[in-house]
Structure formats: C-alpha cells, structure tokens
Design a protein around this nucleic acid. Structure first.
Lengths: 131, 131
DNA sequence: TATCCGTTATATATTATATATAACACAACG
DNA sequence: CGTTGTGTTATATATAATATATAACGGATA
C-alpha cells in the first residue's frame, strides 16, 4: 500500500488516511487480519504526526474496519461492517449534495450513472484475481 | 424557499446555505433572475450572522450560480454554469469516496445506482410543472 | 531487562468557522 | 438634497477543528 498525503487538499490528512485505508480494503490490497503499521512507524513513513495516524485508526476502529489489540497491533477486521442504516443515511445525504449540483448544471443523469459505474468497475478491476 | 439551519450538523452552516440554494435552483423553486434576500434580512430570517450569508453568496457567485449587483442586490444567474471539468473532477472525487466505502461494505452496485436514480427522480418531481 | 505497542495527557500553533460592530461607496427614493 | 438600503471591507473576538511536539503509562514480547 503506497499512500501519499496532500497537505494542500481541502480534506484534512487524517481523513485522507481513512479514505486510503478504505480503498485498500475495497481493492483487497489489504486483506482480512492483515497487520497495519504501528502508529509511530506509519507516521514516520507518511511524514505526519503519530496522533494523526492514531485519529484515523480510531475512526476506522469505531466504524468496524479495524481491530486494535493493545500490544499486538492493528489489523483489518476479518468481519467487515455491512451497509447498515447509518451508512445508507450518510451515503444518501452525500449523494444528494452531488446530484443536486449535477441537476443545477444540467449534467445528464446517464452521465452521472456512468461515472458511478466506472468507479465501481475501476475498484473491482484493481482487485484482480484476489480471492 | 424555506430553509432551516442545523447548528449541530457536521457541515458548517454557510455550506448548508450554499447547498440549500443549489437545491432551490435544481428544483426551480428559485427561477432565473429571481432576487434573493439581502445579506442582512436573510441573516435575520435564518438567525445567523450577515457575514455567514455573505460567505455563501460569494461562493455561489464564484461558481456562477448568482449575479451580484452592488446596489441592485442578488439574483439567480439566468445563465447557469454547465458541468465543466472542474465540477466533473470534484464530482468524481466525492463519488469515489462513497463508492469505495460502499464496496467495503459489500453494498450492491445496483442498490447504489437505485439510490442515485431515486435522488434524481425526487429532484425532478419537485420541479413539478415549472417551465 | 529492554523494547515496542496502543493509549493518555498536556501544551502549542495554525486554520476554519461564526459572530459583533463599524464604516464605506453607490444607487434609488422622496 | 438627505435618507435609506445595497454589497463590501475592515477589525476584533471567540470557539472549534486540525496538526504537531513531548512525555509518560501499562502491558506484552523478545
């Protein structure tokens, strides 16, 4: 997993890290039970602070993506969370913002769908022949 | 246009206002050349500060949704912006975040599409018979 | 024993968000 | 003419979010 932080982006770097790890899970570059770097070594690799990594880990733990054993370390939860109501609500809210602006700009509904489809396709392609 | 602010939401209220006005444009509750309240009266109505309304107006002006004449006031731009490359990029980035987590949670691609479709449908329905 | 781990605590700095108050330039109205 | 109502700009203040720095703790492991 190669992750690069963008310190000029509009999203905070702890959020970028959360998203990058989720992408690793989605593409199965990160497998169930696979260990992640310790907060200290990961922070050193990324050139950021230990607490920033820890913040990302805590969020992913609370959402069910990670398991954290105090001395063992951090691993990908083999039992990943499903599309529960909380996620569906958040997904719908965020999508509404995008769809609303797309309609304002008279973007074709088909073009929007195509974009979604393409993103699903890209992710599944990156999985390759894993599992 | 009835707008209510959520002071506990995770999005800042100036962003909520931007999104609410975009929704008004998308549903054509706000028509081309229609005047919006002055920053002062709008702020009073919403129970927020004048500068917070002004911040939302400035963003919408920079994105091409509003025209601001110094003494005339604020109106909906009759020539709304199209789906330019900047928007397509932002749209793709934001969608990628959602799709990635959806894949992590093994949400059905069809269910995701259905959600988008439903949001498009809802917006177009609210237009009713306008224009 | 020494090392590494997540965790907690404290402190500091910067930026983002939101409000408050005041003044300015300009146009429209009476 | 003066008054009023625009958006605009400026200054100040307060709080929260973000990020870093440093230190210490308790528990496992080599």
């Amino acid at each position: 997993m190669i992750i690069k932080m963008d310190f000029e982006a509009d999203h905070p770097i702890y959020r970028q890290l959360v998203d990058a790890i989720k992408e690793g899970i989605a593409t199965r570059q990160l497998e169930p039970n696979e260990a992640l770097p310790s907060v200290r070594s990961f922070a050193a690799d990324l050139g950021i602070n230990m607490h920033t990594v820890n913040k990302a880990y805590q969020i992913l733990k609370n959402d069910g993506f990670l398991l954290i054993h105090r001395q063992k370390g951090v691993v990908i939860n083999p039992q990943l969370p499903g599309a529960d109501q909380a996620f569906l609500d958040k997904c719908q809210n965020d999508l509404k913002t995008l769809v609303t602006e797309a309609v304002c700009r008279e973007m074709d509904e088909a073009a929007f769908m195509k974009m979604c489809q393409s993103l699903f396709h890209d992710l599944k392609e990156k999985r390759g022949n894993k599992r």
